[in-house]
Write a protein that binds this DNA or RNA. Structure first.
Lengths: 159, 159
DNA sequence: CAAACCTGGATAAGTTCTGTCCAGGTTACG
DNA sequence: CGTAACCTGGACAGAACTTATCCAGGTTTG
């Protein structure tokens, strides 16, 4: 039950892109994003490709290309980022062992409804998802000390 | 972000032990539990050892030994089982990348509070945990068709 | 003492995560 | 128009974790 590191990276990247777009919306090369947080560039590229496939970021090819947020940061939630990077599969996968062994002979009608365990797990995950969906990238960005985004813009402008 | 299969096994085992203890509380050998759901016995043993270490089940050594619930099923929650099998570590592990790269030079005081992303993730996980903690083994057992536990007892009595 | 049971550790195969690399496509700019 | 900067996708290792098995040792019943 462990979340991939890519989620953390992707979330920070989204926040950083939001900061950098306060003024203009010129795309940022993935290599510079990696440099900003000292991450392995080729691997980070993989992760942001997932963001792009999910429609969270937009990519611009060519010489002055790079990445930018595909929509306002207020409309991107942590849930969106997690789903993009980790995939939408549920953490708990019911394998219906209740139908095996001593119950192998029972008619399928005895197990019509979903397994109670699976149902409870699903409800818990829904609570988790609902919470993540209530947190936007914009909200996360606003919650950081204002000097950080300012310095981030300064760091990226000297190019 | 995937939960280990052992959680499903352990939860079913707890429910089954609860059913079998409706009358008496004689311990059940782990090998018979494995047989009940057609699971690989040596590996299932590993998982129930985790339950025992967590104080959810009790083990009895020796010839008529086996496992039994250490406390009433109404006082064992899904959260207890998940924590026992998966460990208590949080799914999201913040690696503080905000302090790296362009922010490596900044004083630690600039990052005094917890990273916003980590905080949001923690809150979401808390919601998940709260939900799991609200579901007891007894509740799960009561939610299954009554013929299933009856047949389970019959299956185990012919020994 | 033998048989049934648990415990812990060692070990191996399979899968996922992390990370790198390369070939190919697109765009800006001199 | 060609080069350099940038993205995309796929292939490919190595590390880490999951799943699974086995064995040596300890405990209890009869």
């Amino acid at each position: 039950m462990k979340m991939s590191e890519g989620v953390e990276w992707a979330a920070h990247v989204c926040i950083l892109l939001h900061w950098l777009q306060a003024d203009d919306a010129t795309p940022v090369p993935a290599a510079r994003l990696a440099e900003a947080y000292d991450l392995p560039a080729p691997y980070l590229v993989k992760q942001v490709q997932a963001l792009t496939r999910a429609g969270i970021t937009e990519s611009v090819s060519g010489v002055r290309g790079g990445l930018r947020l595909a929509r306002p940061a207020g409309e991107i939630t942590l849930m969106d980022v997690v789903t993009a990077v980790e995939g939408g599969a549920e953490a708990f996968a019911c394998t219906e062992i209740r139908k095996q062994g001593m119950n192998a002979e029972r008619p399928a009608s005895d197990f019509r409804g979903p397994c109670g365990i699976a149902h409870a797990m699903r409800q818990a995950e829904l609570a988790w998802r609902r919470h993540l969906a209530s947190v936007t990238i914009a909200a996360l960005a606003d919650a950081t000390p204002s000097s950080v985004p300012h310095d981030a813009r300064r760091h990226f402008s000297r190019a």
